[in-house]
Write a protein that binds this DNA or RNA. Structure first.
Ligand SMILES: NC(=O)c1ccc[n+]([C@@H]2O[C@H](COP(=O)([O-])OP(=O)(O)OC[C@H]3O[C@@H](n4cnc5c(N)ncnc54)[C@H](O)[C@@H]3O)[C@@H](O)[C@H]2O)c1
Ligand SMILES: NC(=O)c1ccc[n+]([C@@H]2O[C@H](COP(=O)([O-])OP(=O)(O)OC[C@H]3O[C@@H](n4cnc5c(N)ncnc54)[C@H](O)[C@@H]3O)[C@@H](O)[C@H]2O)c1
Lengths: 251, 251
DNA sequence: ATGCCTTTGTGAACGCGTGCACAAAGACGG
DNA sequence: CCGTCTTTGTGCACGCGTTCACAAAGGCAT
């Protein structure tokens, strides 16, 4: 949320914690795999392992949905697939528009994983006239001038932004103006949207930087282990302005 | 200050909370933009607004790094850029390999945002012999047979997986075996790795499903508002309204 | 039916993250 | 040099999320 002054219960919708909602797709994926192998039931332990989470967490997550398990047996796979799908709103069709059909936008358009779960690429939109009319992934690229019409005609409520960062806020504003209430943003920009509009971002650069942080920490930990754990020869750094190694961690 | 239990200190590295680490790239991006506009100092309020966070949160985040501000004035932009860069490990070069040069892998390889901050695509790897040797983004695609050699030769410690999900775990195992300790996974798979290896995942499908959940909630809230606002009995029944399914468990 | 054994569902404790509110710090003008 | 005014840095309280641990539930064999 950009300007989150109005603290509404948006964090916890319908009693289902946000953290749980974020894990439901994970469970659903694991359950679908089991379903394809015709496995009738799973225990919380097995399913949790497949989803990469703690079994207690999984049981608590499911408890927010209802009592869908059988004690001593586990969960019925098909039944649970249906319940989670319904809870996530995947029993209906979600038309999606992608704005900015460059490298990334085209890759997303070609991605088969969309259709697998209720999501359907309804339209591709770009500002480049040279691109308008060209076919990408079997769909015509339409011009951004027609953005509002395209969205209203197709009843789209989810938009994906894959334009350069400089255009992202502008595109976002038009999407919201046209009635979009959910946005998935791949551009490296903080979008500001009115209340009632959800924004999620996917940021490669941020992910890499987080990895780099931990990577660096591992390296310095390694050095500290090898270099000698006795920092008795106190480093002369008190609060050096620049070029100074971060504070040493206490042993 | 015994941590009570000798749990894994992986959650909280060097005293900097994980949530803070995840926001540092955001601050860095905002600061870089200010730096390019030659803005000398920023207040926590301004910077927080640019980064889309609360100012108190920002100040607390920075307090973990040290006292880098000047009361009554704010933060020196250049200095803070340097401090955060150093903390994130961006003052050094991070060679990265991308495995799986399909739609997504090629898009990532072509992405200019990599080099902007210490990250450098060192090699592209694919299993398809027809692709080996071809140039993508000015780099030759190398065969997965040489994965270990490529990683060791280039001193790579960060790997990006953009193969199909079915190959992801296998590729992951080889990456880890070759010495990779940080993985960014785009495949829809839960990777299992040994201790000491960090995995972050980017999952388009999960993001869309989370959006769909909230979208559905908005729709039902809207309906409920129009239908009839029950004073306390907001949920009419805990089962689905019209798409009501029999709560039978196939036995 | 009865008792055993497995697994769920959840109460409770705990730790982390967030946001408030304010005292301390320092710049700056007079 | 002093007062004022701005902004930082943080103590504190609160709520969310995670995990433990266990009683209740139910299948199943006898
Ligand atoms: N390519 C990647 O792997 C990658 C990774 C992470 C993030 N990103 C981000 O995703 C975005 C797209 O990356 P890309 O590599 O595909 O860039 P790109 O330049 O290949 O594509 C951008 C497309 O957006 C179109 N566009 C520009 N302004 C527009 C507007 N106002 N309305 C509609 N369309 C517009 C352009 O015509 C172009 O086709 C960028 O913000 C980038 O930072 C990309
Ligand atoms: N394309 C997208 O927009 C998108 C979005 C989200 C997630 N994903 C995921 O990213 C992954 C890649 O998607 P894509 O659309 O680029 O698929 P793709 O089929 O276009 O590319 C996959 C590439 O991986 C290579 N490969 C297969 N097995 C390999 C192995 N064992 N070692 C090395 N390389 C191997 C293939 O040769 C191919 O070039 C998939 O897991 C997909 O689910 C893609």
């Amino acid at each position: 949320m950009a300007t989150g002054r109005n603290h509404r219960p948006a964090t916890r919708s319908r009693g289902i914690p946000e953290a749980t909602v974020a894990r439901l797709p994970l469970y659903l994926r694991a359950l679908t795999a089991l379903s394809e192998r015709s496995v009738p039931t799973v225990s919380s332990e097995e399913l949790a392992s497949a989803a990469g989470v703690n079994s207690a967490k999984l049981r608590k997550d499911f408890s927010y949905l209802g009592s869908y398990g059988t004690r001593g047996v586990g969960y019925d796979v098909e039944y649970l697939v249906y319940q989670i799908s319904r809870e996530l709103g995947l029993t209906q069709d979600w038309p999606v528009v992608i704005v900015g059909i460059g490298n990334l936008g085209a890759a997303l358009a070609n991605y088969g994983g969309f259709a697998s779960r209720g999501f359907r690429v309804a339209a591709l939109i770009d500002a480049d006239h040279a691109m308008t009319g060209a076919q990408v992934a079997g769909l015509p690229v339409q011009h951004v001038d027609d953005l509002e019409t395209i969205i209203r005609t197709n009843g789209v409520s989810i938009g994906v932004i894959t334009t350069p960062g400089s255009a992202a806020q502008q595109v976002c504003d038009r999407l919201v103006g046209a009635g979009i209430t959910s946005i998935l943003n791949f551009a490296p920009t903080v979008l500001s949207v009115p209340d009632g509009v959800d924004v999620r971002k996917v940021d490669l650069s941020i992910e890499l930087q987080i990895l780099a942080f931990h990577e660096q920490r591992k390296a310095t930990d390694e050095l500290a282990r090898n270099g000698g754990p006795g920092p008795s020869g106190a480093p002369p750094d008190d609060q050096g302005p620049e070029g100074d190694i971060p504070a040493v961690m206490p042993a």
